[in-house]
C-alpha cells in the first residue's frame, strides 16, 4: 500500500480537527478536536519515520503524546473551573472583553 495514503489520512484528520475547533462552541468538543489535530500530526511523524527508515519521527511522536497528555490535564482543569463559575462550557461565553 502506498505510504502516501497515511499522509492523506493525516491531512484529512487535521482538517476535521481544525474545522471543529473553529465551528464548535462546546469547550469539550473543541478540546477533542485539538487532540485530533495532534494525533493527525503524530500520524504524519510516524509515516515520515517509516519513509525515511529511521526512528526520529517515532521519538517525536512520543514527545507529542506527552505534551498532549499534559495539555489534557491543564485544559480539562481550566474547563472545569470555567464551568463551575459560569455554568457553561461554551467558549464564546468565556470572554471578559466588553462586547
Amino acid at each position: 500500500m502506498d505510504v502516501a495514503n497515511y499522509l492523506y489520512l493525516s491531512a484529512l484528520l487535521f482538517t476535521i480537527g481544525a474545522v471543529g475547533v473553529i465551528v464548535r462552541r462546546n469547550a469539550i468538543v473543541v478540546f477533542m478536536c485539538i487532540e485530533l489535530m495532534l494525533n493527525a500530526a503524530n500520524l504524519s511523524f510516524v509515516t515520515f519515520s517509516r519513509i525515511n527508515g529511521d526512528l526520529n519521527g517515532q521519538v517525536i511522536a512520543f514527545f507529542t503524546m506527552v505534551v498532549a497528555a499534559c495539555e489534557v490535564v491543564v485544559g480539562l482543569a481550566i474547563i472545569v473551573m470555567i464551568y463551575r463559575s459560569r455554568r457553561s462550557a461554551s467558549v464564546d461565553d468565556a470572554s471578559l472583553l466588553s462586547r
Partner: peptide
C-alpha cells in the same frame, strides 16, 4: 480583531 472569541483567534492562527 481583538473580540475575545477564542474561535476567531483560532481561525486567525489557521
Amino acid at each position: 480583531l481583538q473580540n475575545g472569541f477564542v474561535r476567531s483567534y483560532a481561525a486567525l492562527i489557521l
